[in-house]
């Protein structure tokens, strides 16, 4: 980490600052003195950014700034939950495949291959459509199901990376020595190989989070993800596009939620790339 701070470019540091700020604001939104995100004020509908409403209001007169803050909570929670699911699934699968016999490795990776050749996104949309309107959704299970689904889509890259590294590490002298000393292979796997994988896992997770974030926005934009009255950055964009027409050009409704998402995505991607090139001696030059 010390090395990381001495890299010449200040951009990764800026990215970390932005992400920390976003996270902090999302966490403390309920106690911030902002308008309620769901209070409609028809007389204030379509207010441009400025007096009273920093980023303007939407078609129902709800304060856009407050909605973006509240939306960040759900969007970030989705990203975190999805990445966490992908982390648990992917790391376990990759470790078990890479650390097992050649036969087990073979069938486990075949499963990953099959999943990667399936257009999972469309299956997820099918799943979302089935979950919609079912008793599930009304019981509040919709959002929980959604979290898991987000992770299921993105665990295969993690499994691949972890499996490859595990295979390489298991052939190192210290792993061979531990086997020769009679250490059970599961102990070698979880106590010796796993800690060595942490940098790789960290980089992969940093690169998975923006993809989950984007996927949440994508599904919510299509109306199949987060459902009203919950707000996310994706549903805000959906609201904006529903009322996009030449008479009322409420550009702020399109622009600000998208910019919040775009900057966060960019920060995560840059950070992930920086981490990767910093931890990979081949890329560091």
């Amino acid at each position: 980490m010390r090395r990381f701070r001495t890299t010449r470019s200040p951009i990764p540091t800026l990215c970390i600052c932005w992400l920390l700020l976003t996270l902090l604001v999302a966490l403390i939104t309920p106690i911030l003195p902002v308008a309620s995100p769901n209070t409609a004020a028809p007389e204030l509908a379509w207010s441009a950014p400025g007096d009273g409403h920093l980023l303007g209001t939407d078609a129902l007169g709800r304060d856009l700034f407050s909605r973006i803050l509240w939306g960040s909570r759900i969007s970030l929670a989705c990203a975190a939950a999805g990445a966490f699911t992908a982390l648990i699934f992917g790391v376990s699968w990759g470790l078990l495949a890479g650390g097992g016999t050649a036969r087990r490795d073979n069938w486990m990776m075949r499963v990953v291959d099959l999943l990667d050749s399936v257009p999972v996104v469309f299956l997820v949309i099918l799943l979302a459509s089935v979950a919609r309107g079912s008793a599930w959704q009304h019981a509040g299970g919709g959002l929980a199901l959604f979290f898991v689904v987000l992770g299921i889509v993105y665990w295969t890259p993690m499994a691949r990376v972890v499996r490859g590294e595990t295979r390489a590490l298991a052939r190192r002298e210290w792993a061979v020595a531990a086997t020769a000393l009679g250490t059970p292979s599961s102990r070698i796997l979880w106590r010796q190989i796993l800690p060595n994988l942490i940098p790789t896992i960290l980089v992969t997770v940093t690169l998975i989070i923006p993809r989950v974030l984007l996927f949440e926005a994508f599904l919510s934009f299509l109306g199949l993800g987060v459902q009203a009255p919950e707000v996310s950055w994706g549903t805000l964009a959906r609201d904006a596009f529903e009322v996009l027409n030449p008479v009322h050009t409420a550009w702020w409704m399109v622009a600000f939620p998208s910019i919040a998402l775009a900057v966060t995505l960019l920060a995560l991607n840059i950070l992930g790339d920086a981490l990767r090139s910093d931890l990979d001696p081949k890329l560091r030059r």
């Binding site: 934009f221 596009f241 910019i259 995505l265």
Partner: peptide, 18 residues
């Protein structure tokens, strides 16, 4: 290129339409 990869499609489409 790296901005183009990480932006949501609807942002680009929305800005173009506007």
């Amino acid at each position: 290129a790296s901005v183009g990869i990480s932006l949501p499609l609807y942002l680009i489409a929305g800005m173009l339409v506007l």
